[in-house]
Design a protein around this nucleic acid. Structure first.
Lengths: 204, 204, 204, 204
DNA sequence: GATGAATGAGCATTCATTCAT
DNA sequence: AATGAATGAATGCTCATTCAT
């Protein structure tokens, strides 16, 4: 099979693409470890086993590398819960949100550290703010859907403000996420307590 | 009277003490505006109207200046309204916690921005982590007291885990605080909603 | 037929030779636009539609590329109008030098910009200095010839120092060239004035 | 005598001012030696015996340092010829321009090298272009004055275009300057020849 | 107490050049 | 003949900190 032109080889990702991903992963790890404040391109290059100039070959600026990490995190954050929509009841669908949080907490806790860094950066970086805002809108729609369904099904109180409640739930989940610290295993039970609290309140 | 501090001039508020405070206030404002990432000693000195070398006379290292800011913030954070303890019922005492949050939100919103920065720094700075931990313990005792009193008074369910619930409430309040952004006025209603939610759950 | 050059492919203009010329033309244009200070091999490659590595295949070093441009400019500079020698009188032959200057100014003004850059580089690059010196000698001989002819014909004063006068005329013409700036159309009348001045002085 | 406030000591120039000048002089020399193309802040610092950071203490950017050099050169260029205006005749005043050129050529030939660099930079740096333009206007006024005086006194032809002639003389003098090269001692006689040429033409 | 001057270590970025394919 | 990937060696600039006065 002959490859013409300057396109990347089709089959597996090209060397460059692989290298890009490696670099992003190293950057992701270092941001998780040291935050943006101590995040240095030189260290990324060193730990990726490449030259600083090579790093800049893949990511022309530090900003671009950060964007790469943001994209990477958000991609793995969006790849959620295919079973979510299929939950039999709205209450179960809602509880699934919290279970998902706990699953992430178990499987890739650094995600939370990095997300905290990213969202704190959003106040100073409009590009990141925009991405987070877009994600927020999607999540809000998702939760609103669950709540509305619950009200229609009669499992949630009829007099809740769907919009505002969705916003509150997001805030509470995000708030917990921001408080995760590496090695912390006390968060998971609190998430369950939070789920109880919210479901109780919705059913009241 | 012996001063165990960091070698500051002793006795009553000298000129130096005043100058120190001024510098801390400028630093506090700049951290609120630019976060730790963009926090520069030079700018603190400039805006305080002194020389960088003079700044280093009062605070030998940047670290020490940050500590000064942390002390300053936590001092104003601990000065909670004295009426708290005097609340007639435990439920009111608890609701007071949320009212207090809203009051702070109204009166000195930068406090939240700075606290967010400080607590994100705690993961990398043991000194700050220790201070926050100490504060956390105090707050937890305070909330546990209210909850225990509520249970005793019969206004809260008897089957709650006081310790864990106090922890959960702290987490939720802190979580909201971390999500404050300058100019954001949508947080206050959510705090009220959160208060309702928790009180409902406690009473259930 | 042996090629004494810099290792280029021999024989008639091959594909490589064409590509080489294209590259030189792009380089020429970029030097005219940005001067040597902002002259980048990467940009040459980009605008020539080839890879940097390919550029280095044709020109092993930046130096070599600059040499290519120098050769290109001097070649087009040496291709003076053949009518020069056939001028009926020495005075007309001399005036023709200035007319030629004006013609270049009209037809390819970038030539002046590039020549200015090249000659300023000569002070630091012996190879370029040598080429310019060679060209200078040829031009001096040419002008001396015209002057000597004018003296013999009696149209120029007999007491001029032919050698020195030729040098002076060269200096004056070159001096004007160095002061050309893109878009400047005030130079041409000054060249005419200069021609008058010199011819008046020679005839005096 | 007591010095209050933050002003510099009045008597001799302060340490900082002296250091600034030293730095400018080193920069001036290096530009003369290597041109702008090879002009490096690090080398300036090294040869001035200071740290790069110290260099940036005095000149926040490379641009600012270059401006410093430009100011320095133009200051020494403006400090001309107090006897100029007092020349008995316009012809002598004009000839004085050329003598002045020769004097500079003898006393500080690097001036020409640096000026050539500066004026070549003018095409890309509006700030420098503006300064040169201002200088050009002043010089043009000066030369026009001499020419007008010469016409009034009857030593120059009445039918010259004063404005255009002044411009031509400037061009010719500048043109010679641009062609100076370190160690070149053949320029001076040519300047005299040029002076003869122009005066002859003006008197014709 | 206060400052102007100075510095070491480091930072993101650039650029001509090289090499394996 | 051509290229994607890689690199060494700079380059201008920054920043917390120090020191002599």
């Amino acid at each position: 099979m002959i490859q013409a032109g300057r396109g990347r080889p089709s089959g597996r990702t090209s060397v460059g693409e692989t290298r890009r991903e490696e670099v992003v992963k190293v950057a992701y790890r270092l941001i998780a470890e040291r935050g943006f404040e101590g995040f240095r391109t030189r260290q990324v290059a060193d730990e990726a086993g490449i030259n600083v100039a090579t790093l800049h070959y893949y990511f022309p600026t530090k900003e671009a590398l950060v964007q790469g990490v943001v994209d990477y995190v958000l991609a793995s954050l969006s790849s959620t819960s295919p079973t979510d929509e299929e939950a039999p009841t709205a209450a179960e669908a809602l509880r699934f949100e919290f279970d998902d949080f706990n699953r992430r907490l178990r499987e890739s806790p650094e995600q939370f550290t990095v997300m905290t860094e990213i969202s704190s950066r959003a106040s100073r970086d409009p590009a990141i703010a925009a991405i987070l805002a877009r994600m927020g809108v999607a999540w809000h729609a998702h939760l609103s859907g669950i709540l509305a369904r619950g009200v229609k099904e009669g499992v949630f109180r009829a007099n809740i403000d769907v919009d505002q409640t969705a916003r509150a739930i997001m805030m509470q989940i995000r708030g917990l996420g921001y408080q995760f610290k590496p090695g912390d295993d006390t968060l998971s039970p609190l998430v369950n307590l939070l789920a109880d609290q919210i479901l109780t309140w919705l059913a009241a």
